[in-house]
Amino acid sequence: MSINRPAAAALAAALCLLTAACGSSSDDKASAKSAEAAASKSGYPVTLDNCGQKQTFDKAPSRVVVMNGASVAEVSTLLALGLGDKIVANQQGYGMSEVPGRAAAIKALPTGDVKVNEAYDIPREAMLGLRPDLVLSVTTYGFDQKNGFATRDQLKQVGANSYVSPQGCDDDPSKMTVADSYQLLRDMGKVFNVGDRAEKLIAASEKSIASVSAKVKGEKQPKVMVLFSNMSMGGNDFSSVFAHGIVNDILAKAGGANAFADTTEATFADLSKEKVAATDVDAVVVMSYNDPNPAAYAKKLLKEFPQWPAAKNNTYVTLSDSMYLGPSNDLAVRKVAEMLHPDAV
Rank of each mutant, 00 (worst) to 15 (best):
S2T: 15
I3N: 12
N4Q: 11
R5C: 11
R5T: 15
A10K: 15
A14E: 15
A14Y: 14
T19D: 11
S24C: 10
S24W: 15
S25K: 11
K29P: 06
A30S: 10
S31F: 12
K33E: 15
S34D: 14
A35E: 14
A35V: 14
A35L: 14
E36D: 14
A37K: 13
A37N: 11
K41T: 09
P45V: 02
L48S: 07
Q53V: 09
F57Y: 02
A60T: 03
S62H: 07
S62C: 02
R63T: 01
V66G: 01
M67K: 13
S71W: 00
E74H: 12
S76R: 06
L78H: 04
A80S: 13
I87H: 03
M96I: 07
E98L: 00
V99K: 15
G101C: 09
A105N: 04
A105I: 07
L109P: 00
T111L: 06
V114E: 13
V116S: 06
N117M: 01
A119R: 15
Y120P: 03
D121N: 11
D121H: 06
G129V: 07
G129M: 09
G129K: 12
L130D: 05
L130N: 06
D133P: 00
L136F: 03
L136Q: 03
V138A: 12
T139S: 12
G142K: 01
G142T: 01
D144K: 08
Q145S: 15
K146I: 05
N147L: 14
G148F: 04
T151D: 02
D153Q: 11
Q154N: 05
L155H: 01
K156G: 06
S162V: 00
S162W: 01
S162D: 11
Y163G: 07
Y163N: 04
V164G: 02
C169L: 08
K175S: 12
M176C: 10
M176I: 10
Y182K: 05
Y182P: 12
L185K: 03
M188L: 15
F192Q: 01
R197T: 08
R197F: 02
A198T: 04
A203W: 10
A204V: 11
A210M: 05
A214P: 03
A214R: 08
K217H: 11
K220L: 10
K220P: 07
P222G: 07
V224E: 15
V226Y: 10
G235K: 08
F238Y: 12
S239G: 07
F242A: 05
A243P: 09
H244V: 05
D249G: 04
L251I: 09
A252M: 05
A257P: 04
A257I: 13
F260Y: 03
F260G: 01
T263S: 07
L271K: 02
K275Y: 02
T279W: 00
V281Q: 01
V284T: 07
V284S: 06
M287H: 01
P292A: 09
P292D: 07
P294H: 02
Y297D: 09
Q307S: 14
P309V: 08
A310Q: 02
A310K: 01
T315F: 06
V317T: 15
S322N: 00
M323R: 00
G326L: 06
V333S: 04
A337N: 07
M339P: 15
D343R: 05
